[in-house]
C-alpha cells in the first residue's frame, strides 16, 4: 500500500451525456479531490491529450491517471480508440478501463487483447454505480501503482 494520490485525474471517454453525468457524480462522491474530465469521442480525446483543436487554449493538460473508455461510441468505437491510444508514444502507457454496457464475452476478450487494463460493466442502479466507483478508486488510486508522467 502506498500513499493515496491526492488529486487523481480520471478522463472518461463516452458519447452519452447522462452516463458521464452519473459516472462523474458517483466517482466524485466516492473520492474527494478527484479531478474528473470527460471527452465525447476520439478526436476530442487526442485533442485533449495533445492540447490542440478545441483544447488548444489549454496551457497545460491534466494528464489522466486512468482513462474510462466506453465501447459504443459512434464513428470510432472504443476498440479503435484503445488501439490508437496504445500506439501513442506519449500517452500510450496510461491504464485504460473499459466502462460499457455490453458484457459479452467476445467484447471482454477483445478489449483485453487490445490492451485494456480492466473491464467494468455499467450498472443501472445508483447503488451499483457507487460500488463501482468505490472499488475502482480504492484499487487504482490507493492500491495499484500507476506509471508516473511527471
Amino acid at each position: 500500500m502506498r500513499t493515496p494520490m491526492k488529486n487523481p485525474v480520471i478522463l472518461m471517454v463516452d458519447d452519452d451525456d447522462e452516463d458521464i453525468y452519473l459516472t462523474r457524480r458517483a466517482f466524485c462522491e466516492s473520492r474527494d479531490g478527484l479531478i474528473f474530465r470527460s471527452v465525447q469521442n476520439s478526436t476530442a480525446l487526442f485533442d485533449y491529450l495533445h492540447c490542440r483543436g478545441e483544447f488548444a487554449h489549454n496551457s497545460d493538460v491534466d494528464v489522466p491517471d486512468v482513462i474510462l473508455l466506453d465501447i459504443n461510441i459512434p464513428k470510432e468505437n472504443g476498440f479503435e480508440i484503445l488501439r490508437k491510444l496504445r500506439q501513442d508514444d506519449q500517452f500510450g502507457h496510461i491504464p485504460v478501463s473499459m466502462l460499457t454496457t455490453s458484457a459479452a464475452q467476445h467484447d471482454v476478450c477483445k478489449a483485453y487483447k487490445l490492451g485494456a487494463s480492466s473491464f467494468i460493466c455499467k450498472s443501472v442502479s445508483a447503488k451499483g454505480m457507487k460500488e463501482v466507483a468505490n472499488n475502482f478508486c480504492e484499487y487504482w488510486f490507493n492500491f495499484a501503482k500507476l506509471p508516473s508522467t511527471n
Binding site: 457524480r25 443501472v124 451499483g128
Partner: peptide, 8 residues
C-alpha cells in the same frame, strides 16, 4: 436511462 435515473 430510466432504470439508472429512477434508481438514483
Amino acid at each position: 436511462k430510466i432504470q439508472q435515473f429512477s434508481s438514483f
